[in-house]
Design a protein around this nucleic acid. Structure first.
Lengths: 165, 165
DNA sequence: CCGGTGAAGGTCAGAATAAGTCAAAGGATC
DNA sequence: GATCCTTTGACTTATTCTGACCTTCACCGG
């Protein structure tokens, strides 16, 4: 225990985090090849670091492009999901959701103070609108997907709005 | 925006956008040969830039003519943003959406200042996450639904936030 | 007229560049 | 020694850039 000697992946993570701290706007751009050279490893190691450490759950979004002028960009999101119920949302929603279950989930979230009454109505409206022409199982699958997506959006946007004040 | 541009195609795109911004009536006319000379590249590079960056999805129409007195004209198309969020979103999204189309739609909305860079990435991430294990048509349908739902949420919440101030 | 000619722009496929994927091997931890 | 995390490299995919070849058009000489 104590100070475990960090491995390569940890060093690369540290490096990227330092860059992010220094960067204006909480975003950085790197070349995969260059970074791999700097750390004397194969390029795919960079992908490993990014996919294990710079995830949405940890508050990052990553964007990349191949070919000439290619890059990897890492953005810090406003959303820190360890303090915000992202995982929680995923755990309550499930893969298949009936209209009734949707109501229950939203009720719980409102009860917990995560969303308010207006959000509840808004979400219910959107989910219903987007699943209205579907029946049975496919409706439930779509509802689940949309519910998760909408909740994720709402939570991150809310947070942004709060910060803006 | 500090968009760092790393390749020729991006430079040419930027140049054309600047011209469009300056132009009265949101339209410009260029000579392919001249532009290629200016950027020291083959003429077909211009076609590449136009066909990848100035698409209908991104809000442009392009018209050209060969032969003596030939030209390429680029027009910016307009989008009515004053309508209700739902109607607006529906007019942009459609029933079936490829990943590429989603990218273009979000790009255009960002271009119009309706969403910002982070929204763009966030939404792309959410939609991809929710459609990642699907293939072909069903993926496109789900993408369309989720994209509509997420955009509608975002726009409604945004409005609320503004009202609250 | 009318067919030729040169001046545009268009198409397509291949090379070059850079990132992504995946599975298997290697280590650490319990 | 079982399991989980890391590291590697062979293979895949995406994007850009180029050049050879094609099409369209105005104009000109006969």
């Amino acid at each position: 225990m104590g100070d475990n000697v960090a491995n390569l992946a940890d060093y690369i993570e540290q490096h990227l985090r330092r860059l992010l701290d220094l960067a204006e706007g909480g975003a950085i751009e790197i070349q995969r090849r260059d970074l791999a050279d700097k750390f004397n490893c194969v390029p795919s190691q960079i992908n490993y670091v990014i996919s294990t450490r710079f995830t949405a759950e940890r508050g990052f979004v990553v964007e990349s492009r191949r070919g000439e002028g290619g890059y990897i960009r890492i953005f810090r999101t406003h959303l820190d999901t360890s303090t915000h119920p992202f995982g929680f949302v995923n755990s309550v929603v499930g893969d298949s959701v009936s209209d009734q279950e949707m109501g229950d989930v939203l009720f719980r979230l409102k009860d917990l103070g995560i969303i308010d009454r207006r959000d509840e109505l808004l979400i219910k409206g959107i989910v219903r609108q987007q699943s209205e022409d579907l029946r049975g199982r496919s409706a439930s699958l779509v509802r689940a997907r949309i519910l998760r997506a909408v909740l994720a959006t709402l939570l991150s946007v809310r947070r942004e709005c709060e910060e803006d004040m």
